[in-house]
Simulated scan of single mutants.
Amino acid sequence: MSEENIDLSSQVGKNLREIRKSKRISIEELASVSDISKLTLGKIERGEANPTLNILWKVARGLNIPLASLVDFQEESEIYRFETNHYFAGQHNDWFITPVCKAFGSVEWHRACIEPNSEYSEYHLAGSEEIVLVLNGQLEMEVGGKNHQLNKWDVLRFKGEELHTYRNCSDERVYLMLSLTYATP
């Protein structure tokens, strides 16, 4: 698939349909466990909707899969170029994440940006591990109630299932690389 022909909505829909069918889950069952309407799920699967990060998160949780599984593009070798139009934004547009790739079924890589003077909190599936690499500036991270001050090129590894908060207390954007590893793909 060439870079010029990437249609994120269609790829998400295709991936969702394949994953749902491989798990033998009906759209009705998925709607129930993810708290997303059947109509919305159908539109996503057909590539007719551009789902928000919140909706994709609920779908991934409902299927008990990593979020990147829904936006994965499989090729033998790929260049992952920075594209400003292929990202997911937090509810207040203060957190941006771009899925980069999924490696060997259980590891996914993301580029992320947190806006000045903002924070974002999340947690991942049980048994997951997250690694954060700070590319510029300073970032405060709270993991399991413990604060960590990270500087450019610092790396923090922690259990992804613990609630963690990214805080940018500076007046500049902070860019990150994130790696998520799951116990099962």
Rank of each mutant, 00 (worst) to 15 (best):
Glu4Tyr: 06
Lys43Tyr: 11
Tyr80Phe: 14
Trp57Gln: 12
Glu162Trp: 11
Tyr182Val: 01
Asp72Met: 13
Tyr166Cys: 00
Lys58Ile: 02
Ser121Pro: 02
Val134Lys: 02
Met141Thr: 03
Arg81Glu: 14
Val33Ser: 14
Val100Phe: 05
Lys152Ile: 10
Ser37Gly: 03
Pro66Asp: 04
Ser2His: 10
Arg61Leu: 08
Tyr120Glu: 03
Gln11Pro: 03
Val59Asn: 07
Ala103Val: 15
Gln149Glu: 12
Glu161Asp: 13
Leu39Ile: 07
Tyr87Asp: 08
Ala49Ser: 15
Ile97Leu: 07
Val59Lys: 10
Leu163Phe: 10
Gly47Ile: 06
Gly145Val: 04
Tyr80Trp: 09
Arg24Ser: 14
Val100Pro: 02
Phe158Gly: 00
Thr165Ala: 02
Arg167Gly: 07
Trp109Lys: 15
Thr184Ser: 10
Val100Asn: 09
Ser26Cys: 04
Ile97Thr: 12
Ser121Asn: 02
Glu162Tyr: 13
Tyr182Thr: 01
Trp109Ile: 13
Arg173Val: 08
Glu108Tyr: 05
Ser2Tyr: 07
Phe82Thr: 11
Gln149Ser: 14
Val134His: 01
Asn136Arg: 05
Asn15Asp: 07
Leu180Phe: 11
Tyr120Leu: 00
Thr98Arg: 15
Ser32Phe: 13
Glu76Gly: 04
Leu133Pro: 04
Asp35Tyr: 12
Val12Gly: 02
Phe158Cys: 00
Leu180Ser: 13
Leu8Asp: 04
Arg173Glu: 11
His110Trp: 11
Glu119Lys: 05
Arg17His: 09
Trp109Arg: 13
Ala68Gly: 10
Leu70Thr: 06
Leu156Trp: 01
Glu130Gln: 06
His124Cys: 03
Leu125Tyr: 00
His164Trp: 03
Ala60Arg: 09
Gly127Gln: 04
Asp7Ser: 12
Lys38Pro: 07
Leu56Gln: 09
Ala49Asp: 07
Glu45Asn: 07
Arg46Thr: 03
Leu70Gly: 07
Ser37Cys: 02
Gly137Lys: 03
Glu130Asp: 08
Leu56Ala: 08
Cys169Leu: 13
Trp153Cys: 09
Ile114Thr: 00
Asn85Pro: 00
Lys58Ser: 11
Leu125Arg: 11
Lys102Ala: 06
Leu135Thr: 01
Arg173Lys: 15
Ser170Gly: 13
Glu29Leu: 08
Ile19Thr: 02
Lys14Trp: 07
Glu48Gln: 11
Trp109Val: 12
Gln91Glu: 14
Lys146Gln: 14
Gly90Val: 00
Arg167Glu: 08
Arg173His: 11
Leu30Ala: 05
Lys102Asp: 01
Ala126Val: 10
Glu122Thr: 12
Val134Gly: 01
Ser179Thr: 12
Lys43Asp: 10
Asn15His: 09
Glu140Tyr: 09
Glu18Thr: 08
Arg111His: 08
